[in-house]
Simulated scan of single mutants.
Amino acid sequence: MRAALRALGVIGLIAAAPAASAQTFSDAFAGFGSNDREPIQIEAKELKVQDKSQSAVFSGDVVVTQGEATLKTQRLIVHYDGSAAGGVNQRISRLEASGRVYIASKDQTATGENATFDMNRQLMVMTGKEVVLSQGPNVVVGNRLTVNLKTGQADLEAPKSGRVKVLIQPKSLNEGAPRN
């Protein structure tokens, strides 16, 4: 059974904040790839550059930051266009994270086992036995999350034999709303 949530539908409702400043869960991913004005900083215990395959493999407590977004994982493969000899201004075309992937931005977090960021198509896909998205006390759980980084549309799928789970704390939806 496949279940999906749309960012502008249910996820937007779950993540609702007062007035027009409402953000969706997909905003947590917007920092990676869609913001080409902010540098991407990567730290790890080890780096192996593979110029033939136009990639760099970071391993060991990898931390990636861009703007307000942070990604933590055990292994990250960065695919780039051009030669590593071309300097630090290489264009990143794809990120592949594996091993306890954690992404955070402001009060939003997402966790899973693997995540890929396709910078050319502006798509992020996170998979795992449980992909957990949270914003404050609200939580959404599935096993495959696809986010269009440009539009913010997100689809969360359930395992074949399971269902998407949503936990909404009542007070989180009423913050800032007038009481009768």
Rank of each mutant, 00 (worst) to 15 (best):
V140M: 03
L145P: 00
R91H: 12
Q66F: 06
Q66H: 09
N89K: 15
R2H: 14
T127K: 11
D155K: 01
K72E: 10
R2W: 15
I14W: 00
T65V: 08
K165V: 00
K150R: 15
Y102C: 06
G162N: 05
P159W: 12
V131R: 06
G60E: 15
P178A: 12
A7Y: 00
N143I: 04
A158M: 03
I92W: 11
L149I: 05
A22K: 02
P18M: 09
P18T: 08
I40L: 12
R91F: 10
L5H: 02
N114I: 03
A104P: 06
G12N: 00
L156D: 00
T70A: 04
S55T: 10
I103H: 01
V78R: 06
G99C: 10
R144C: 05
L173W: 02
G162I: 05
L5V: 08
A69S: 08
T127P: 02
V64L: 08
Q66N: 09
F29V: 00
A20V: 06
N148L: 04
Q135K: 15
E157D: 11
Q41Y: 12
R6G: 08
L123T: 09
N180E: 08
M124V: 14
E43Q: 15
L123A: 07
S98P: 06
D107S: 10
S59E: 08
P39F: 10
R100P: 02
H79P: 03
T65M: 05
A44T: 07
T65Y: 03
S134F: 00
L156P: 01
A17T: 05
V62G: 01
T24I: 03
R163N: 03
Q135A: 13
K171F: 06
E38H: 10
N174Q: 14
N148C: 05
G82Y: 11
Q90Y: 14
D51N: 13
P18K: 11
A44Y: 08
I77L: 05
L8G: 09
Q50H: 09
P137E: 05
K48H: 14
K150L: 10
